[in-house]
């Protein structure tokens, strides 16, 4: 418990530092950043947007520390400002839409890749030199070495363009009304998800599988495994409760951290498949110089990574009793 509180404290400090940096950087530039942006837009900015920009950056009247507190209070209220390119939609709303799609696609794919990778890794280690180990492992390894976008485009080319089995892009058929209760909509969403999800799984599974397999192999050489077998326990029990339970610890923390990055969106996937997730949102924001939106996304990613790290630490404490003693 104390361990977790200590980590929480550490992460809160990290968060504060990044938020402060976020605050400081525009101010370190010489000149007025808002005016600079206005110049970029070649004067084609809604004057109200300029106002809100000043607000967002905390360029209100008053000394620096007042600005800082205003900025912090805005953040705490969940007010990330207003998106410039999509004025007057607030940043939080824009992100929310992208976040939903990202969580569904990338989240699901990561979970599948992890679960399948772990399961295959266990089998590969248990039966070393047999099918899973000598055939599947090298294949997944090979797949993870491919440049992702190349694999994605290949898949898109053959299965969508060539065979026409899957759509070429987007999260759902644009002519179907967005309604989660409609089975038509649901099946369209699923249909659109399959190719991008598959490409993510194919490239990610190798890493998890290899990691788990290697951990398993070192755990399998431990005496307590021999003891468990000598006790006459079934192979299944030894493999899962004794071996995998110990071997999975490092992979789990890796998984928790990769969940943090899920929120950053799988940028390449979303570009290749034109999937409207957070990555796509971020890309558009960069292209349109939509600073509030960019800042909002970065902040979200920062928080997500820190939360994921905290989650990983917590999980370790829950799963490994030796850490609790510390």
């Amino acid at each position: 418990m104390r361990f977790i509180l200590r980590r929480l404290g550490f992460y809160l400090i990290a968060l504060l530092v990044s938020v402060t940096l976020n605050f400081m950087i525009p101010r370190l530039m010489s000149g007025d950043p808002v005016q600079l942006m206005f110049a970029r837009f070649q004067g084609r900015m809604d004057p109200r947007a300029i106002e809100s920009l000043y607000e967002t950056f905390g360029f209100v009247q008053g000394p620096l520390h007042e600005q800082y507190f205003t900025y912090l209070s805005h953040l705490l209220q969940g007010d990330l400002g207003v998106s410039i390119a999509n004025f007057p939609i607030p940043v939080t709303e824009v992100i929310a839409v992208g976040l939903g799609w990202t969580l569904r696609l990338v989240g699901l794919a990561t979970v599948i890749a992890f679960s399948a990778g772990i399961f295959l890794g266990i089998r590969a280690a248990w039966r070393r030199g047999r099918f899973a180990d000598s055939v599947i492992l090298p294949i997944t390894g090979l797949l993870s070495a491919f440049p992702y976008f190349w694999l994605a485009m290949l898949v898109l080319y053959f299965f969508a363009l060539g065979l026409g089995w899957f759509p070429l892009g987007h999260a759902y058929s644009l002519d179907i009304h967005q309604d989660w209760s409609s089975p038509e909509y649901l099946s369209s969403v699923l249909h659109h998800m399959i190719l991008p999800a598959t490409t993510i799984v194919l490239t990610a599974i190798g890493g998890w599988m290899l990691g788990m397999r290697n951990n398993m192999i070192s755990v399998l050489s431990e005496d307590y495994i021999t003891m468990a077998q000598a006790k006459g326990l079934s192979d299944r029990r030894v493999m899962y409760t004794y071996a995998a339970r110990n071997a999975i610890l490092p992979s789990l923390t890796g998984f928790a951290m990769s969940l943090g990055f899920v929120l950053g969106g799988a940028l390449l996937t979303e570009i290749v498949f034109s999937y409207p997730g957070v990555g796509y949102t971020l890309l558009t924001a960069v292209n349109t110089r939509d600073y509030p939106l960019m800042q909002g996304v970065f902040l979200m990613i920062t928080v997500a990574v820190l939360v994921a790290n905290l989650l990983a630490d917590t999980m370790y404490v829950l799963l490994d009793p030796r850490v609790r003693a510390a």
Binding site: Y224, M227, A230, K231, G232, L233, T241, L319, P321, R322
Partner: peptide, 28 residues
């Protein structure tokens, strides 16, 4: 049955002692 050298390694560190005794009982 067997008693191993250095019990440090004969017991799984993530399972309670009770579970590891129970295992032997239930497996048979």
């Amino acid at each position: 049955s067997i008693v191993f050298q250095s019990a440090m390694n004969a017991l799984s560190p993530v399972l309670t002692v009770g579970t590891q005794i129970a295992d032997a009982l239930q497996a048979h």
